[in-house]
């Protein structure tokens, strides 16, 4: 029998643990030409802000070995247009919508959470904490446990009680576990990790930085080991907290790796650019990987790699 892929996010049952990663699936419409968005776990939206946002100048992306350097700057329609057009569309297609939000102060995040709580059908709110805190010293919320916790706390207080709040963490911090602890103590129902890794590419033809913004965020298979370690350490410290593992997932086997490290759900980002049907494919492949290992339910293997000895396999791995 095929393995059971069903997973949970708060009270909502998802048909599979495979989600899109924030900012990598457009509005969902673009992908719906290649996959059925209702059949993957959920669509995580790009990070929505209060006002429309034009984003950064171009070039915005550069290819690296096994990765992508990007600096899009959260180009987006703003919350009003998002609710009217994009959320309505996702729900009309039967997709589960996890709405990622971004702001420059805890108050902005909270305002967005109120708007989303008033709209019906939001499965969860994900907080993109990789945004400069204008009330602090301009450092990202994600890099300061107190600032991150403040955002979580304001959102948890403002959001409807039954909407899970997910804090999305960045890898470029002294200790991701400290930030994870601060966020869960402040009321985060789950954690997402990782956001992109800061990086830079210089174009040797123009002899200038390849991106208009200079530096950018690295994503794709190149960062997967960084994601695995972040998930591993967080799972070790906070075994009860659900983790959405993100970073370089390209195949069902990669998704399984993040699950074994401790992820309950898995986000697919950059690889969607390479393969628009990636989420559906990875979901199929994950099912095959589990079935081949004689595993009945995907939930049985979350964090399994932490067990001192791997359980004996009843069937050899192909």
């Amino acid at each position: 029998m095929a393995a059971d892929l069903r997973a949970r996010l708060g009270h909502v049952e998802l048909p599979s643990p495979i989600l899109t990663a924030a900012g990598c699936a457009g509005t969902g419409r673009e992908l719906a030409q290649y996959i059925d968005v209702a059949k993957i776990g959920a669509v995580v939206t790009k990070s929505i802000m209060l006002d429309p946002r034009a984003g950064r100048p171009s070039p915005r992306t550069a290819e690296t070995a096994g990765g992508l350097l990007s600096s899009v700057g959260l180009q987006g329609p703003g919350i009003d247009a998002f609710l009217q057009r994009d959320l309505a569309w996702l729900l009309s297609r039967g997709a589960r919508a996890v709405v990622s939000i971004a702001g420059s102060s805890p108050g902005e995040y909270a305002e967005l959470a109120v708007r989303l709580s008033d709209a019906a059908g939001v499965t969860a709110i994900e907080l993109n904490l990789s945004c400069p805190n204008v009330e602090g010293r301009g450092r990202d919320f994600a890099s300061e446990p107190d600032a991150a916790a403040q955002v979580v706390e304001s959102v948890r207080a403002a959001a409807r009680y039954d909407i899970p709040v997910i804090a999305k963490l960045a890898p470029d911090v002294a200790d991701i576990v400290t930030v994870a602890r601060a966020c869960t103590a402040a009321g985060a129902d789950a954690l997402s990790m990782i956001n992109t890794v800061p990086g830079m590419v210089i174009d040797t033809t123009t002899m200038r930085p390849a991106l208009a913004g200079g530096a950018g965020g690295l994503s794709g298979p190149a960062i997967r080991p960084i994601a695995v370690r972040s998930i591993w350490r967080t799972r070790q410290a906070l075994p009860e907290v659900p983790i959405i593992g993100i970073g370089g997932v390209r195949t069902g086997r990669d998704a399984l790796e993040l699950i074994l490290a401790g992820a309950t759900l898995v986000g697919v980002g950059t690889v969607i650019f390479h393969d628009p049907s990636a989420c559906a494919r990875i979901q199929r492949e994950l099912e095959d990987e589990l079935t081949a290992r004689n595993i009945d339910r995907v939930t049985d293997v979350t964090g399994l790699a932490h067990q001192p000895t791997a359980p004996a396999l009843r069937r050899p791995i192909p």
Partner: peptide, 16 residues
């Protein structure tokens, strides 16, 4: 022709 990463409208690279 603007450099794109995906061609399907999701990567937001080829903007003008």
């Amino acid at each position: 022709e603007q450099p794109t990463a995906c061609g399907t409208g999701v990567c937001m690279s080829c903007v003008l």
